[in-house]
Design a protein around this nucleic acid. Structure first.
Lengths: 195, 195
DNA sequence: CTTTTTTCTGAACGATTGTTCTAAAAAAGC
DNA sequence: GCTTTTTTAGAACAATCGTTCAGAAAAAAG
């Protein structure tokens, strides 16, 4: 009963995510938001609790989408192959507007506490996932026993983050493939003919 | 003759740079800007041409400051030692608010064309500087002749960018030193006992 | 049809944005 | 003292921000 809604919740979320991803929290204005997302102001406040509520839900929606990538680090058996797959997939993914999570980190002075702690957990989770694969690689003999798992994990996270960010800052169409080959040879070198 | 100014140009620029660096172009409001920078609105428009003018000059001021780092890649003789020094210095520098240039890249939808092209040139310049040192390292025998200089240069730029960005996103006080040691061993591995 | 319920449209709200402008203030020259 | 010149402080500006709300609109129930 009652007048039917003219919008679909998941579709609104999808479009809002894209917009916040591109322009950030402050850079996204309500006028454009309601136009692009296809929802009216009234419903936006009733359904999402305003701009900040929609932003936070968009951020979590983005993190869910990222499971396409992060799940690659959870595949059994853990090891070097997962790490290689992760970098290849990251390179193939469309990060034209950078990483939404990292972008949000840079707006900590303006986004709510919920969004801020979510970004923190996301980054920590990424580092932990890398570390688990490094540790497994050591156990499986793909990496030498003396490997500093935490140091290597941080190195890999930083590189992953850097490749994404570099893709935005570098001239359009710059090929990251050759940088990835360097990484591959690096991992080859670490395993040192073990496998 | 006339009433004396109550502000110093370079000091205003220094403080504006810090503020824009931290909060970005959109996130920095005139009210706070004039208060922190110690200049009045009228003079800000007469001297810098408004918010956008001051922003662009702040960005260039930041790039000048970065010469403390970028000059490390120009030291003769070019080679691996420069690259190692660059990463050590980057790690030691205070990038608590990330890199101003990279932050600006993420605001391309709102900053002027001048600022935008300046960021592009800065990143390209960084990559070129890395590449020159890689090429020199090959000539000097520090790296094998088959080295893909451009690929390695991109790899290093991405890593450098990533370490800065990771430092902002990771929990406060996270030690990047061990990630740097991984890089050092990586470079050792590349040179393969040549030097 | 009328009533009820829910949503939509569009206007209005106060607050804040970047910018402009006016009048007072502070120096120097005479 | 009185001008002249330059800068300052702060008001005023239109525009826009995020938010709220009242009335019209669109469905279902009786």
């Amino acid at each position: 009963m009652g007048r039917p809604k003219t919008w679909d919740r998941s579709e609104v979320l999808r479009r809002a995510t894209r917009l916040f991803w591109e322009k950030g929290f402050e850079g996204t204005h309500l006028q454009e938001l309601v136009r692009v997302a296809g929802i009216n102001r009234f419903a936006l406040y009733k359904e999402f609790g305003g701009k900040e509520g929609l932003f936070e839900e968009s951020l979590r929606n983005y993190m869910k989408d990222m499971e396409v990538l992060t799940s690659l680090l959870a595949r059994e058996p853990l090891g070097l192959a997962n790490i290689r797959a992760m970098f290849r997939a990251t390179d193939a993914y469309d990060f034209h507007h950078g990483c939404f999570v990292l972008n949000t980190v840079r707006e900590k002075h303006v986004v709510g506490a919920g969004a801020w702690s979510a970004t923190r957990k996301f980054v920590e989770g990424g580092e932990a996932a890398f570390r688990r694969n490094v540790e497994a690689a050591v156990v499986r003999g793909e990496l030498p026993p003396a490997t500093d798992a935490e140091g290597l994990a941080r190195f890999l996270v930083a590189l992953d983050i850097g490749l994404i960010t570099y893709g935005v800052a570098a001239p359009e169409g710059t090929d990251r493939g050759r940088a990835l080959e360097v990484l591959d040879r690096f991992l080859d070198g670490l395993s040192g003919g073990r496998r």
